[in-house]
Amino acid sequence: MSLQGAFRALSDPTRREILLLLSRQDMSVGEVCTRFRITRTAVKKHLSILEEGGLVSAQTQGRERINRLSPEPLAAVADWISYFSQFWDTRLDALQAAIEADTQAQQQTSPPAPEAEAPETGVIESGTIETGAAPRTSGATAPANASRKDTQDE
């Protein structure tokens, strides 16, 4: 199972809507079309991406293709511990940035931060202490998440 395909399928709000519809009942392409104000071609495209992602299976019944939700990959995608781990990493980065901004505003002595490499994140797992996780200095200020954004490209 390609997790990549499942993520691609889930990345679009219309496709997530379609999944939600299919979670209630199986539907033909035509039935799915009645729920959206987009062309039949667009709906079919979404369905085929969902199928490629393993989230929907389609069965031919007579002249119709009946689409059915395949929830199995969702379990793999929905690793909630990872999800919330990332959630807190993002928030804690934002907290560090917010506190730094606040400190600098109070001191009012901050020269503009140079274009620095995004610092190592100060967030570490399970209490493991790294020397690299020392408090950031003002010179190392980076937008929250800067150290992560660059790893998200496909």
Partner: peptide, 21 residues
């Protein structure tokens, strides 16, 4: 299943400041 997340992060401000945030 491990159902606990632990994160540690350091700040160069006193606890009282972090507390406010």
């Amino acid at each position: 299943m491990n159902d606990t997340l632990v994160k540690t992060v350091f700040f160069n401000v006193p606890p009282a400041t972090v507390w406010r945030f």
